[in-house]
């Protein structure tokens, strides 16, 4: 009895302690964002900001180049919304086609789609840049969001797997009742795959919010910057190193990431454990 209690205690001590150790850097970042900039590295070891200040947040929020951090957040949200619409519509259509319809060349295109999962972005990066610059799309969101309207292999695969778990009898019953093929997609499948669509939406949000390479390549004027671009600028501009403001805005960009996770934890965890999506 005593031994099992001791084991229980040790288990929680080790596992819990290790977890806190892992998150210590984030806690440190959070606390440092409330310290006076000059103090951050003087009192590195201390977890109590004294004096406690919000100045970093007000300073960081001012942004740069006449654009407040709110502008960057707004830009990122617009980016996210365009990506969400694109992925949800296109991936669900394509996944329905692959999972439910029988047509010539289905196996071939499915294999192509899986293979394209493995293709490094670097291979298409330069020609895409050339194409988009010839189209006059530089310094706009178009090169970043237009491809989203043609599906994303990861999410297509995730949705295909999900649709395959739905009994075909439902489709057949709907067809007997006079439903068209599109009707089956719209009225039967779409409502039933909402959990997988939620996973798609959440990861689309994460990947878009964190996307740095895309905005670095395609967005030049500060009034179009996304949050990750803005943070990158904070870092390159730090001649005198306003650490506090940079930390504060880092925390601001992490808040939605955490928030969505805690609201929709189930979909995130399921999405990873069933499909192997990298978080």
């Amino acid at each position: 009895m005593l031994k099992s209690k001791l084991r229980y205690f040790l288990f929680h001590l080790i596992v819990g302690g290790f977890g806190i150790l892992l998150l210590y850097p984030v806690i440190w970042l959070l606390i440092s964002s409330f310290k006076v900039s000059e103090d951050i590295f003087v009192t590195v070891g201390s977890l109590i900001p004294s004096p406690f200040t919000f100045d970093n947040y007000t300073q960081g929020w001012e942004g740069f180049g006449g654009n407040s951090f709110g502008v960057f957040i707004k830009n990122t949200l617009i980016f996210v919304i365009f990506m969400l619409i694109g992925h949800l519509i296109s991936c669900s259509l394509i996944a329905f086609g692959f999972a439910r319809l029988k047509f010539f060349g289905r196996g071939f295109w499915f294999a192509i789609m899986i293979a394209s999962l493995m293709l490094p972005y670097e291979v298409v990066m330069i020609p895409q840049y050339v194409i988009f610059s010839k189209l006059g799309w530089l310094n706009s969101l178009a090169p970043l969001v237009v491809p989203a309207y043609f599906g994303h292999p990861f999410f297509i695969f995730l949705l295909v797997q999900f649709i395959r778990t739905i009994p075909r009898e439902l489709d057949e019953a709907a067809i007997i009742d006079g439903c068209s093929t599109f009707g089956v997609y719209r009225r039967i499948i779409l409502p039933l795959i909402t959990p997988a669509l939620a996973t798609t939406a959440i990861f689309t949000f994460y990947w878009t919010w964190d996307n740095l390479l895309g905005p670095v390549l395609y967005l030049n004027s500060p009034n179009k910057y996304t949050v990750s671009m803005a943070l990158n600028m904070f870092l390159s501009n730090d001649s005198v190193s306003n650490w506090g403001a940079m930390f504060a805005m880092s925390i601001v960009t992490l808040i939605p990431v955490f928030g969505i996770f805690f609201l929709f934890q189930r979909y995130v965890v399921e999405g990873i454990s069933t499909s192997g999506i990298k978080g």
Binding site: F247, S250, F258
Partner: peptide
């Protein structure tokens, strides 16, 4: 979850 972000790289 947060590892891919610029904020974490800065941290």
């Amino acid at each position: 979850l947060i590892g891919g972000s610029v904020a974490v790289a800065i941290m």
